[in-house]
Structure formats: C-alpha cells, structure tokens
Computed example of a mutant assay.
Amino acid sequence: MLRRAALLLALLAAPGAAPARADGPAPDLAFGAYQRGYYQTAFAEAMKRLDKDKSDAAAMTLVAELEAQGLGVKQNMPEALRWYRLAAAQGDKNAQFALALAKLAGKEGPKDVAGARDLLEKAAARNHAGAWMQLGILALEGNGVASDFAKAAENFRRAADLADPEAAYSLGLLYREGRGVEKDPQQAAYWLKRAAEGGFLAAQVEYGILLFNGDGIPADESGGAKWLVRAANRDNPVAQNRLSRLLFFGRGVKQDRVEAAKWNILAASAGLRDPRLDGESNKLTPQERARVEKSLRDYLGK
C-alpha cells in the first residue's frame, strides 16, 4: 500500500515549509514553491540549497519527490531513489518512509519487506505517522507468518495519536471486531469519529451509520445523516445509498423523494443497486422525474 499523500503532507509539514516571521529566518523558497504548485521553482531552489549544503536532507527529499512524481521535471525514478537513499542515510524520516514504500512496491528490485520494515521503524522512531500506519499494515499482512492483530492495533494507535485519520479508522475497526484488542463499541465509535473528523471518507460513512443507529454512542439520526450527506457529496456509493433511504422515508432528514431518487441513481451507477429504492423511485410522478434529472445534471456539473 503506497501512501503518497502521507509523504506529501509530511514534506509540507517540514520545518522549512512554515512561513517565516518578520523577525525570523528567511523564507524557505523551495518548500514554499512546492506548496503552491510551482514545481520547477521548487526543484531549482532545492538544488541551490544542495549546492550550498550537500548534506541538506530535506532538500534531497524534496528533489526526490519531484523526480519520483515528474513534477516540474521529467520523471526519473532511479534518480529519485538515489536522492531518497542519500537523505535516508542522513536520518530524514520522510526519505526513510518513501524509500520503504519503494522497497515494498519493488521499485528497487524484488520486494524487500525486511528492508522496508527497518526503514519504517527508523522513521516511526522519529514520530512519522505514515510509518507507524504502514507498520500496522505489515503486522496485519503477516508476510509469511500469522497476522499480529495486537501489534497492528498498537501501531495504528501510535499513528492515530500523531493525527493520522486512516490509522484512527483502522483502529476503530479493530475495536469494533475485537481483533487485537478487546471488543469495545464505545472505543470503536471514538476512533471512527476521530477518523471522520480528520476527513477519512470511509470513516465518515461508518461513523454516520454508527451515530444513526446508536452503536456504542447515543443514537442521533440527524447527526448521522449529516455525516452521510458529507460522504455522499464526496461520491461514496454506500453513503449515497444510505442517504437515499433516509430521504425516501424521512429519517434524520426531511423527506425529499426527488433528492432520494437522485442519490439512488448515483449509487446504482457505481454498482450498488437497491431494489427497494428502485421501487420507490418508480412511484415518482413525471414532474418529480423531471426534477430528478435536473438535480442530477446540477450535481454532475458541480
């Protein structure tokens, strides 16, 4: 599992990425340009930094990421890996994480789980949330040995405590199923809520359903519906299907058969068919059907 977004966020959170205060150090042009999408400038400024200081690990990692993704420069994975190795040897946790992902993906040759784990442990020791998350995934995968759910839960918790929403979601699921931790609906709801608030889409769906049903927390149909609305608008078919049900029958939201039919069509187009909702849609009047078509056009043109 390649977690490129985690690396990008980590790069932007690097010390050099923060805006300079009026009485502070000079602004970091390389990371500032990268953050704003001026990739050629970011590459040029990072190379200037390396001309001045060949041990600038953060600049090495930035150059590597630009070359790995082909941002502002021609994509060059061998050269990107070279820069990642140099930065990782300097102790840069973002480079260690990226290099570990490359080893897991076989971009350096045959898949190297042991080498990746070693790098992930080094990055995790420096509080890299993505590294803890990936170590949790490795514990679940087993890689030739039995899955270690308890170890996975511990690693996910470390990542979640560092504000990784995917890790909070994964930990919530373990609490819900009682895998690696004692089954605990309240803890499941707590971690799923944290993941949902962190913007993790699957968690927004799961937490919305939990909240609606009162599973591990007091039932709040209106609150649950709001999370489903948020996830449905992010094109999640499960959320669209559940929201359609709520709208057809007026649970947690005001009944709106037109909007209900719209969401049912969108969920069905993603492969989630629901005969009961199709039956409700077939009861619409010609005028309502015309409004559904308009609502669909408006949504798809968003």
Rank of each mutant, 00 (worst) to 15 (best):
K302E: 12
N282R: 15
I137C: 08
A30K: 01
R4A: 07
P78G: 04
A225Y: 11
L300D: 04
A57H: 02
A105P: 14
F97T: 06
P237I: 13
P27L: 01
D220N: 05
G115A: 08
A123R: 04
D256V: 09
A139P: 10
Y38M: 12
A146R: 13
R194T: 00
H128S: 01
L62R: 00
E177W: 10
A59Q: 00
A268P: 07
K302V: 14
A80H: 03
L11Q: 01
D215A: 14
R257V: 15
A57P: 02
E65T: 13
A26E: 13
I265E: 08
K183S: 04
K294V: 14
R85P: 11
L171R: 03
D164M: 12
E197A: 11
A116E: 01
D215Q: 09
G279N: 02
Y84V: 07
K183N: 08
Q240R: 02
D118C: 13
A189M: 00
R289L: 05
E45H: 00
S295T: 05
L8F: 15
L162M: 06
Q240M: 03
L71R: 05
A5R: 12
D148R: 08
A59R: 00
R276P: 14
A5T: 11
L9Q: 07
A10P: 12
A5V: 12
P25G: 05
Y84R: 03
L140G: 11
Q69I: 02
K111Q: 14
L300S: 04
G109Y: 05
R276Y: 08
A203F: 08
L300T: 06
A102G: 14
K183G: 07
L2H: 08
G199W: 05
W263F: 07
P110Y: 11
A18S: 11
Q90P: 08
L50K: 05
A268H: 05
M77F: 06
L211G: 13
V238D: 06
A139Q: 14
R245E: 11
R117A: 09
A153P: 11
K254R: 13
V63K: 02
R291Y: 10
K183Y: 04
R251S: 07
A195C: 03
K226F: 15
A139T: 09
I217R: 03
G130Q: 01
L120H: 04
R242S: 09
A160S: 06
K54F: 09
Y169E: 06
L8I: 14
A30W: 00
G142T: 10
A152H: 12
G24R: 01
N94I: 05
L29E: 06
A159V: 12
T61P: 00
G279T: 08
A14R: 01
I217P: 13
Y207L: 08
G208M: 01
I137Q: 14
A98W: 09
P286G: 02
L71V: 13
R4N: 10
A152K: 12
E182W: 03
